[in-house]
Computed example of a mutant assay.
Amino acid sequence: MVELARLRAAIRAQRRLDIVYADAAGRRSRRVIWPVQIVFMDSAHVLAAWCELRQAFRTFRTDRILGAVEGARYPANRAELMRCLHGHLGLSARADC
């Protein structure tokens, strides 16, 4: 499992992360993501990120992120990604992302 401090550092630095992720069944996959926000849920911490593979926002339980390698800075502005993420989640009226 990757420490939350490393994920927060990647968010602040606007760095891509190449992650190894395990789904609920234990199947592993690799993704390159642009981390945007950590959300604290009742039973888990969740990383909201733009997924380069899916070309969409996805959420990743932090306890299922098995490894992460920091990469180059992603090209988008984090504040703009946050607005788009909130629109995607229905938390704002933003629909042009």
Rank of each mutant, 00 (worst) to 15 (best):
Ala5Asn: 12
Arg6Asp: 13
Arg6Tyr: 03
Arg8Cys: 07
Arg8Thr: 03
Ala9Arg: 15
Ala10Gln: 13
Ala10Ser: 14
Ala10Cys: 11
Arg12Asp: 14
Arg15His: 15
Arg16Thr: 13
Arg16Asp: 04
Leu17Gln: 10
Leu17Asn: 04
Tyr21Ile: 01
Ala22Asn: 05
Ala22Tyr: 01
Gly26Cys: 07
Arg27His: 12
Arg28Ala: 15
Ser29Val: 04
Ser29Cys: 09
Ser29His: 08
Ser29Tyr: 10
Arg30His: 14
Val32Cys: 09
Trp34Gly: 06
Trp34Thr: 02
Val36Thr: 11
Val36Ile: 15
Ile38Trp: 04
Ile38Glu: 05
Val39Cys: 07
Val39Arg: 09
Phe40Leu: 05
Val46Gln: 03
Ala48Gln: 15
Cys51Ser: 03
Gln55His: 09
Ala56Lys: 02
Phe60Lys: 03
Phe60Asn: 02
Thr62Asp: 05
Asp63Glu: 08
Asp63Tyr: 01
Leu66His: 00
Val69Thr: 13
Gly71Asn: 09
Ala72Leu: 09
Arg73Ala: 14
Tyr74Thr: 12
Ala76Met: 13
Asn77Cys: 10
Glu80Tyr: 04
Leu81Tyr: 06
Met82Gln: 13
Met82Thr: 11
Leu85Lys: 05
Leu89Gly: 05
Leu89Cys: 09
Gly90Thr: 10
Leu91Asp: 02
Arg94Pro: 00
Ala95Phe: 14
Ala95Leu: 08
Cys97Gly: 13
